[in-house]
Computed example of a mutant assay.
Amino acid sequence: MSFLIDSSIMITSQILFFGFGWLFFMRQLFKDYEVRQYVVQVIFSVTFAFSCTMFELIIFEILKVLNSSSRYFHWKMNLCVILLILVFMVPFYIGYFIVSNIRLLHRQRLLFSCLLWLTFMYFFWKLGDPFPILSPKHGILSIEQLISRVGVIGVTLMALLSGFGAVNCPYTYMSYFLRNVTDADILALERRLLQTMDMIISKKKRMAMTRRTMFQKGEVHNKPSGFWGMIKSVTASAPGSENLTLIQQEVDALEELSRQLFLETADLYATKVKFWSQHISFILVGIIIVTSIRGLLITLTKFFYAISSSKSSNVIVLLLAQIMGMYFVSSVLLIRMSMPLEYRTIITEVLGELQFNFYHRWFDVIFLVSALSSILFLYLAHKQAPEKPMTP
């Protein structure tokens, strides 16, 4: 009876995760693109659901929720399903939709899709040769063989994203890299803006007075009669017209200056909001896992928006599902080492005889390379776009 209750809890949570992935990601983030294939939407949502379930099981391990045998069963089933999706289903459908976009191969798309999948499996299998990740005694399609190779790819992606995020986040939010904005700076800029607006109003009054004077003298609406009348009218109205033209040019210049001052004032206010948001954000350390997942999904979404089109959208969504699944599987490998020994027994039994220390060393190396490369990239970008000096 307890197994049925535990299974109902897990199935309910997976349905909720699936629904969240389906409604939010497919109906909100990808609604502007032609992701009309239901199989793509289902694969993405299922991958998201089982990825979140692994984190749920980690929490259950720590809190001792569910029976130990139930947790072991759902760990095993969850890993089998996610590996089936990442190694067999997603690569096949990626090849299928790539072939479907090529007219010459359209009739034989199933055959060429199988050939692409076999090519993927060859390189996926050869990926494990250079790394000391597994004992050779395990079978070809065992969980250990598959998860060891998925782990290499996923840990590499995690390290690359973490290295860039560790550099980019302080660069974006820390006050050291922001403009030093004080209340006096804002007040001075607002004073300049008000003075500019007063000058604009004053000059527009002068223009109105000049037009009124010209109208009273009959220099505006009186049409010239004959050649000599035309010459006389133009000669009489020339000084007023020149004054109006000069004043209008000055007004146009002042209005452009006022727009620039307004935008700069708004930028100073926004910069000073950023300063306080940094201190507030440090209070929210407790939601680091949630923000990590959110950051990954936002990065993937930006990547999707940047390169997606009507023909490639299905392939891009499947690639995002592949990256997301590998990312979460690798997170389990790394989180396991940070858990106390009594909480990781079942996880170790399910994952098998993997070289867990290798993944941590590999993560450190890739993280260091990614962070140093990001520092160099942001340094060059910062030098190419120097800070705009404050207007006196």
Rank of each mutant, 00 (worst) to 15 (best):
S8W: 13
S8P: 04
I9D: 09
I9S: 10
I9G: 03
I9T: 11
M10K: 09
M10C: 09
I11S: 02
T12I: 07
S13L: 15
I15E: 00
I15Q: 04
I15A: 10
I15W: 04
L16G: 03
L16P: 03
L16W: 03
F17Q: 00
F17S: 03
F17T: 01
F18N: 06
G19V: 04
G19M: 01
G19N: 05
G19C: 05
F20V: 08
F20L: 08
F20H: 00
F20I: 08
G21P: 08
G21K: 04
W22H: 10
W22G: 01
L23Y: 11
F24C: 01
F24H: 01
F25P: 00
M26L: 14
M26T: 14
M26P: 02
M26K: 04
R27Q: 10
R27Y: 10
R27M: 07
Q28D: 10
Q28S: 10
L29V: 15
L29I: 15
F30V: 03
F30E: 05
K31S: 11
K31G: 01
D32Y: 09
Y33Q: 13
Y33V: 09
Y33H: 14
Y33A: 12
Y33E: 12
Y33C: 09
E34H: 11
V35P: 02
R36C: 07
R36W: 02
R36H: 10
Q37H: 07
Y38P: 08
Y38E: 15
Y38G: 14
Y38F: 13
V40R: 05
V40T: 13
V40C: 08
V40Y: 04
Q41S: 12
Q41A: 11
V42I: 15
V42F: 13
V42Q: 06
V42T: 14
F44C: 04
F44H: 08
F44W: 12
F44E: 04
F44S: 02
F44N: 03
S45Y: 05
S45I: 08
S45F: 05
V46Y: 03
V46Q: 02
T47A: 09
F48V: 10
A49E: 00
F50A: 01
S51M: 09
S51E: 08
S51P: 02
C52G: 13
C52L: 15
T53Q: 15
T53D: 11
T53N: 13
M54T: 12
F55Y: 14
F55S: 09
E56T: 13
L57Q: 07
I58F: 05
I58C: 07
I58G: 02
I58P: 00
I59K: 12
F60Y: 14
F60Q: 10
F60W: 11
F60N: 14
F60C: 11
E61N: 13
I62R: 08
L63Y: 07
L63C: 01
L63E: 10
